[in-house]
């Protein structure tokens, strides 16, 4: 096709310039700066000393860092392990062809994901109180053996965080699963039923392979988000992550060293370890996705 009037070379730059300038100033530049900082020791904005790999060497031996890492991985695994099956189950229930009120249920399940972590924390803090919190009162009413003094926030911090984040995130994930399920061609499941497949077999061998890309992507996004957990424990448990750092996460530790202690160098080293972890996760997911596509 011969174009009548080729656009001048500067035209695309007019469109991308606003984004590129802002992105360069507030994303690329800080990113490069954080790479430099990771090899420096800093105290406040004024003093920088180049220390080579010292930050990373110290990190390997830092028990607080490993505690934060353990907590964060526990939270991520716990959240994903509860949230993905729950979201998928709800989506399957809502995908029944003869269901009435689908839109209303979808709206209800989705609603918690609209409110920010801050507000979830404000809401769950009284709900998870020992004696007066609704969660303990109801659990005690349902199971008389349940200890009404169950210390969600103080002792079982990670369980409490998983509970709050599943409440918040399951519906969001469900909306994606439901959309994916509605794209599964009816002919496929019908053919499987005619061949004598039960509901369970239809799900495993027909439906799940069809929606696997969306499940994989949402699992990755949930994991990447969970690894960066900050607001919820910071607000629910306090800046140090509660008693003995039971709820301390990697990003909380980063925030503490960078903003409370003032060592942006060490904080950047923590941040880069986390960044590499997340990049690794994304690469693993991509490889898995590619392999299933080739099958």
């Amino acid at each position: 096709m011969n174009s009548a009037r080729p656009h001048p070379a500067w035209v695309p730059w007019v469109f991308i310039a606003p984004f590129v300038v802002i992105f360069g100033t507030f994303a690329v530049w800080p990113l490069l700066r954080s790479l430099q900082l990771a090899f420096e020791q800093t105290c406040g904005a004024q003093t920088h000393v180049f220390v080579g790999l010292k930050n990373f060497r110290y990190l390997v031996l830092d028990p607080m860092f490993w505690q934060a890492m353990g907590n964060t991985i526990l939270f991520t695994v716990g959240t994903v392990a509860v949230q993905v099956p729950l979201a998928l189950g709800l989506a399957l229930l809502l995908n029944r062809p003869d269901l009435r009120g689908r839109a209303v249920f979808r709206l209800i399940f989705f609603s918690p994901s609209l409110i920010g972590m801050v507000f979830v924390a404000m809401l769950f803090s009284p709900l998870l109180e020992k004696r007066t919190g609704l969660v303990n009162i109801w659990l005690h009413a349902l199971l008389p053996a349940w200890n009404i003094e169950f210390a969600w926030l103080e002792t079982y911090s990670m369980t409490a965080l998983i509970l709050a984040s599943v409440w918040m995130g399951a519906g969001f994930m469900m909306v994606y699963f439901l959309a994916a399920l509605q794209h599964v061609p009816r002919e496929l499941t019908d053919a499987a039923s005619i061949d004598g497949a039960g509901p369970w077999q239809r799900f495993w061998h027909v439906v799940l392979p069809e929606i696997r890309p969306v499940v994989g992507l949402m699992t990755l996004l949930a994991a990447v988000g969970s690894m960066q957990l900050f607001d919820l424990p910071y607000l629910l448990l306090g800046e140090t992550g509660g008693l003995n750092g039971r709820g301390l996460t990697i990003v909380m530790y980063l925030y503490q060293t960078g903003f409370t202690v003032g060592d942006l160098g060490y904080a950047s080293a923590i941040g880069w370890v986390l960044a590499l972890l997340l990049i690794g996760l994304a690469l693993v997911q991509r490889r898995l996705a590619r392999r299933t596509r080739e099958d």
């Binding site: 695309p12 690329v28 942006l264 997340l278």
Partner: peptide
């Protein structure tokens, strides 16, 4: 289609998985 398109695109999309917390300190500095 223009020169530098691939570079700009991959530079931007490559940062999608960078944790926002990593940028907190240096952006504050900026």
């Amino acid at each position: 289609r223009f020169r530098g398109r691939e570079t700009v695109t991959s530079a931007i999309l490559g940062t999608v998985v960078v944790p926002t917390a990593l940028l907190l300190g240096p952006s504050f500095e900026t």
